[in-house]
């Protein structure tokens, strides 16, 4: 059973005590919505949950195992979308998705095309990423998310630069992910319109 637990997370950034005893439990099929003012530490928390930032104290477990013990196994199930899209500006959308998928699982050309059609950027497939708008780039990043799978999604402001249709799409993608038993952690300013049973909330001070 997929389950992410965080217990008493403590983290300092220089003089600033960013995470003060954060705790959360997110089970399979649930989404943890992380909210808080700018600078409250949402991104830091998400990066800590991925294992990118070492903790001062506390423990993060995935399926009951500390993520620091077998980071490779944890990372192979993790799919992270940060502020930056993780895409190269000088590659086309298709090439970006092909190389991103090559790090995770074998995909066919039609899988890539299907992922781009799903996120509404099929017509931009052959264009260099630097020629796309910020919203289109975000949609290509969402295509990467669906293409590379993983049972734990960690998304940092996934809705930034997206239009209204993009927000609906994002909710659909998260909903599908949760229905298949996946776990999602989403930092957002905008309330996620998910069923109450699927939604957990965490507000950082």
């Amino acid at each position: 059973m997929n389950e992410l637990t965080a217990d008493n997370l403590q983290l300092w950034r220089g003089e600033q005590h960013v995470l003060r005893g954060i705790g959360a439990v997110v089970a399979g099929g649930q989404c943890l919505q992380v909210t808080g003012a700018n600078g409250a530490g949402k991104t830091t928390l998400l990066r800590a949950l991925c294992g990118l930032v070492p903790l001062e104290a506390g423990r993060i477990c995935w399926r009951g195992r500390d993520i620091a013990v077998d980071a490779a196994a944890f990372h192979s199930e993790l799919n992270y979308l940060g502020h930056d899209n993780g895409l190269k500006a000088d590659l086309t959308a298709t090439e970006n998705l092909r190389y991103a998928a090559a790090l995770r699982r074998p995909v066919r050309a039609q899988d890539i095309a299907a992922a781009m059609a799903r996120t509404g950027v099929a017509e931009a497939a052959g264009q260099l990423l630097r020629h796309l708008s910020a919203g289109q780039r975000r949609r290509v990043a969402l295509a990467r998310l669906t293409l590379t799978g993983g049972s734990l999604w960690v998304l940092d402001e996934p809705g930034s630069n997206l239009d209204a249709g993009g927000h609906t799409l994002l909710l659909e993608l998260i909903g599908t992910h949760l229905q298949s038993g996946g776990v999602a952690v989403v930092a957002t300013h905008r309330q996620l319109a998910l069923p109450a049973a699927q939604l957990r909330s965490l507000t950082l001070q």
């Binding site: 294992g51 490779a72 990372h75 192979s76 992270y80 930056d84 899209n85 993780g86 895409l87 190269k88």
Partner: peptide
């Protein structure tokens, strides 16, 4: 530098391969 700025380096660090 570029990989660090566009986030692809994070993806390398988090893909579960050495």
């Amino acid at each position: 530098r570029e990989d660090a700025q566009d986030g692809t380096l994070e993806q390398l660090a988090l893909c579960g391969l050495p």
